[in-house]
Design a protein around this nucleic acid. Structure first.
Lengths: 252, 252
DNA sequence: TAAATAGTGTCTGTAAGACAGTATACT
DNA sequence: AGTATACTGTCTTACAGACACTATTTA
């Protein structure tokens, strides 16, 4: 946007030591009434840092293949899961001398939201294991690097934003019903939400449009629900207030 | 926090090309009824990228001197301004192949808030110029690199958070009066704020404590005001609602 | 019909916005 | 007294929370 008018001679790159640069992605979904996060197992081998530990999907920036950090994050996602167009947002970066035994390292951390059915897990190029874990359970595991910290930050950011945005709509497939969406909110927040207040908020937000009544399925009990679709899948809607009182920080 | 139990052998660092890693700091203050941002002039010289342009203070991560990204940001601040303990928060990172003519580059961007009187500008080691600029005016300048974009993001984040936090308290010296703090809010937001609502919000927040009546100065007109001090200078307080309706995003 | 799920209406509480009013200093 | 600044009170409005109520389906 601004590096447009570049300077005159092709400048020489400084040649002092550079830190390692990586991108990690915290990929969330809701499945089986739980908020889940995707982890991959670190490869085995004596030279490998944190060999065999579970870690966030990620890896070094490839200056040949990646045009930008965002591209790099999308590539990591594509490699681990089927191609999708998730909600993707940067969380921040973590860098210091000790987080990676291979040297001074900085990681650019993103988080992403996908509907569970849209994902088809791929074994990595090196056939490493890839699995969904309950998010809070993953927090208590001994993850590689400082990934517990990254995951905690991603969880805090997600839960913070869920209080006042329509983010959970990116965690379920379209079209969705309001009771289903409410369930996703409750799973992410870990507490029940009042139905009436919830519906007023969602329908007042103007970010959804009706998508017809849900097709009746066999053995489906009760009154059928209206289904909805997002008007704009590129961003979340903001509500004028939080759900309860504003909780923790990391609305950041 | 988690990279504690490091793996066995001192792992070898991968030796493919690494991007450049830098840290930039958007330093804000309020002075002369305006929100101001600190800029430094890029050095002259044919080999220098964006020679002579104004830029955010920043530079390459020094893997010898900097223990972490935060340390690096504090060092940049210290080099340009007198040592201070500002409010400092990470904004995010920007990285791509084209933002720096010297090669694939990623910058870790922080923003900081300081009271104007606490700053004594230092000429950089290379005697470069350092100056405060009106923040919105700086946005319209042709800054170096993608710094217009970084500045825009910092401004959006700051203005967004000011709607529902006590952040402006970090922009004035302690002890401060409520009318003075209100003025800072108005300068940052660029709009007037209702006095009664403002005071109820601030005093209900419980994040300040009284610090005595303001000492009367010569020629000081009107009723003297109570002064306050922050209870906790390490973080901002959160209010249950935004000032108006929630505006733009970048609460992110 | 009962059971299950979807959806609405109404009352209350909280905090912001508007704005008029009072309080305390100075010249 | 007059003026300037600090501070308070009261009314309205917006929206979340609680919860009882109605609506529409299947078995």
């Amino acid at each position: 946007m601004s590096a447009s008018n570049a300077p005159r001679p092709a400048a020489r790159a400084p040649n002092f030591p550079r830190p390692l640069a990586s991108v990690d992605v915290v990929l969330f979904t809701v499945q089986a009434d739980a908020l889940q996060v995707l982890l991959v197992r670190r490869p085995d081998g004596a030279a490998e840092p944190f060999a065999g530990r579970w870690a966030l999907p990620g890896g070094f920036v490839d200056v040949e293949a990646d045009a930008s950090l965002l591209d790099c994050a999308l590539r990591k996602l594509r490699e681990k899961t089927g191609a999708i167009t998730p909600y993707l947002e940067q969380l921040g970066s973590w860098g210091n001398a000790t987080r990676d035994p291979r040297g001074w390292s900085a990681t650019h951390c993103f988080y992403a939201l996908v509907p569970a059915p849209s994902v088809a897990l791929q074994k990595g190029a090196n056939a490493t294991e890839v699995r969904w874990f309950d998010a809070d359970a993953a927090l208590r595991k001994r993850l590689a690097f400082d990934h517990v910290e990254l995951l905690a930050a991603a969880l805090a950011r997600l839960r913070g934003k869920v209080e006042y945005t329509s983010l959970p709509a990116f965690l379920i497939e379209e079209p969705f019903t309001l009771p289903a969406l409410q369930h996703v909110y409750e799973v992410v927040l870990g507490r029940p939400v009042d139905k009436s207040a919830f519906r007023k908020r969602m329908q007042g937000g103007g970010f959804m449009e009706e998508a017809g009544m849900r097709a009746a399925e066999a053995g489906q009990l009760g009154r059928p629900a209206m289904t909805y679709r997002l008007r704009d899948r590129s961003q979340a809607a903001l509500f004028p207030r939080t759900f309860n009182a504003r909780g923790t920080d990391d609305l950041a």
